[in-house]
Write a protein that binds this DNA or RNA. Structure first.
Lengths: 167, 167
DNA sequence: TATTGTTATACTCTATAACTATA
DNA sequence: TATAGTTATAGAGTATAACAATA
């Protein structure tokens, strides 16, 4: 159930090779019946578009997600980010350290819990994310140009039906 | 654009914290507008179900995919698998070596190209995949129980519209 | 000159154990 | 006793360079 590119083998010749029994889909005909395979491949395509569009801001998907959540939930703690974005605490530490080094986020004492630290976007972090979210949205649309607006909306709904309230 | 679990922070209290301005979605409201984010999360959910259902066969998604393609395209070469499943040749080598060690695949000389090796499922590989594909299909359905049959079909169609003929 | 399969290796990502300060 | 943040490190996954055999 790996993702795959759309590059198709150039060396295959339609009829003369030994094993060309069921190669219309290049052997993936079963895999293509699985939602997991299809969702993984679509996600891979969309993430590729994301990287092309947002990579110039020097943000990986996980950096972008973290900054987006902080931006939309100012004061969020590291632990809450971990839960929301499925990142383990030790890995979040280095991630936040790097974003802090770049001056994109600020840390403030948590109002009620002295163990915790509230996270905020800095002024430059806000400016960056304003541009980055615009670029991300454009890249996301570019990755789904073959979908109508209604299809896109429907796709979001169906995908959320899978991951909301599920593991 | 990372994936996320559905575990929601337990420490947040609705009104008394500093930054509870826009936390209905836990800060992910923008991310949820992106197909890439939604597809990644849905894929993560479905792959989790896959692992629960197929992991007992000691097959990762990539092993399963490779075996499935070999099964449905007997005689396929390592290079063709790489292209079809987005795995780099050096990594495919160790993957195939392990599957070979386990007796799940066999290698035969390629009929026309003496550099290449054709891959086949062994008898036990076929037997394993018969059970594993059944388990994978069941797990995939389990991961999408909230979808009707029509919705599922539609979802596959929409996802393929994204990754077919796209990068 | 290009391609298949391969080795060796580096790099990134993800996961685990354990510590401190605080709840 | 449990949790937030952290350190150090191990392990898995992914990527690059280079080689021999063959096209």
């Amino acid at each position: 159930m790996s993702t795959a590119p759309r590059t198709v083998s150039t060396t295959r010749k339609p009829k003369e090779e030994v094993a060309d029994v069921s190669s219309e889909a290049g052997g993936t005909e079963y895999l293509e019946t699985l939602l997991g395979y299809n969702a993984s491949r679509a996600a891979h395509t969309l993430v590729s578009h994301f990287i092309r569009g947002v990579g110039s801001f020097d943000l990986r998907t996980v950096d972008f997600s973290v900054l987006s959540v902080i931006g939309h939930w100012p004061g969020v703690t590291s632990r809450q980010l971990c839960q929301q974005l499925n990142v383990l605490p030790p890995n979040m530490v280095v991630l936040l350290r790097d974003l802090d080094k770049r001056g994109l986020i600020e840390r403030q004492p948590h109002p009620t819990d002295r163990r915790a630290v509230g996270l905020l976007l800095s002024t430059s972090g806000k400016a960056l994310m304003k541009k980055a979210e615009k670029a991300a949205s454009a890249a996301d649309l570019l990755g789904s140009t073959r979908l109508s607006s209604a299809e896109r909306k429907n796709l979001v709904r169906l995908l959320q039906k899978i991951y909301i309230s599920a593991a």
